[in-house]
Design a protein around this nucleic acid. Structure first.
Lengths: 212, 212
DNA sequence: ACCGTATACTGAAATCTGCAGTAAAGATAC
DNA sequence: GTATCTTTACTGCAGATTTCAGTATACGGT
């Protein structure tokens, strides 16, 4: 028999969506693509597995909807599920995890060419740019077509502000990094020169070299 | 027999460290704690497994060092390893992954109390604050004791600038979020009121509500 | 009738984390 | 000097998650 399954933050994320309305697993993958992805990116596969686990735990029920074209499994939250959600609110949050391969490349840029670093920065800019645009477009769609859950606008807006601030900070840094790298003759061996010492001093005093 | 293992970005991160000098797996866990963690957080467990995989692939060799107290396995990069590292520089980077449970809580704050949201923000502030302080202290240690790899200062400094910008952006947003939430009577049902509409309009035009 | 795309879902291998456990060396306290 | 705590050094295993390759039906247009 299946071992006792545990509730992960991903499980609570899905449960929180089910608390808004019933969804099919497919719907969940679409919704996750729209908003969840920016705070809690999870694979499509997981979004098919999680609701099943919630049913096993008694936090959701499922039924087959045959009304539309093909049949599909719809998931609905239970009272126990709503109780579990409330309890989640008081647990300690996990520390943020930020994973950026382009930064890893920069950190080890001395194994490669200047071109390699510039390409890594371009790719980071591209990836961030896509997300940036998607968030702006989402906000535009809320003005045009209205918010799918209008009573939650205050939350979406705070969340989107976080994204926009983050994207702008990263895009600003990319510009700064390009200007710095432009002064490098190669990727290697700059040592503690005048410029790097200035920057280290600023950073050690918690001043951003980008500020002034 | 073991299946053919694949090189992941984590494998390349370890390989890049081995290109600086030979390390034991334990050393790698310490180093990862100091710098890697901010771009590519990985578990201690993985940092014991990766060098073994690199040996299997012929990208590293290992020998037992019995000089100090207890014996330990030291890993060294090979020529093939250096070649593999060079090739890594030209592959497309993965898109950034940002995972912040506190934001997830905010996004679903309407299931809980105002206290719950404030606690999530406090916890985010605490976690970011710890990282922020660690980076500033690391830069301070580079001024005092010198950089462990002085020829790489230019890279550390750009990398640290990214962290500091990111931390300041998040800390600024936390303050903004607190001020906004302060105006909420409850976590629920604010709908599209004057304030949320103003914010949505700004965001849809790619303006941060925090700017002016 | 054919083709491309969206909907709807599953199994299995590979990756990675978390945790418990093992053990020896060094440091500190009494 | 010896009890105890911390650091160094490492492994096995269960559980969480991703990636990938499938399977299959419905719908829209040509």
């Amino acid at each position: 028999m299946g071992m006792a399954k545990n509730m992960t933050p991903s499980s609570y994320a899905v449960l929180a969506l089910l608390d808004l309305r019933p969804w099919t697993a497919y719907d969940l993958t679409q919704q996750a693509q729209r908003s969840l992805r920016y705070a809690w990116p999870r694979s499509e596969r997981l979004l098919y597995s999680e609701p099943k686990k919630l049913v096993e735990l008694g936090y959701a029920t499922t039924y087959k909807d045959t009304s539309g074209g093909r049949s599909r499994n719809v998931y609905e939250i239970t009272e126990e599920g709503r109780d579990a959600l409330k309890a989640w609110g008081s647990a300690r949050t996990q520390a943020p995890q930020i994973e950026i391969e382009a930064l890893l490349r920069l950190l080890f840029a001395d194994h490669g060419s200047l071109d390699d670093v510039h390409r890594a920065l371009d790719e980071l800019e591209e990836d961030i740019g896509e997300h940036h645009q998607a968030v702006v477009e989402l906000m535009g769609s809320y003005l045009d077509g209205g918010h799918p859950f209008p009573q939650r606008t205050h939350l979406s807006v705070l969340f989107a502000t976080f994204q926009i601030e983050m994207f702008k900070a990263i895009e600003g840094w990319i510009e700064f990094a390009r200007r710095e790298i432009h002064e490098w003759p190669t990727t290697e061996d700059l040592g503690m020169n005048e410029r790097t010492e200035t920057l280290t001093r600023l950073l050690a005093r918690d001043k951003s070299p980008m500020d002034p």
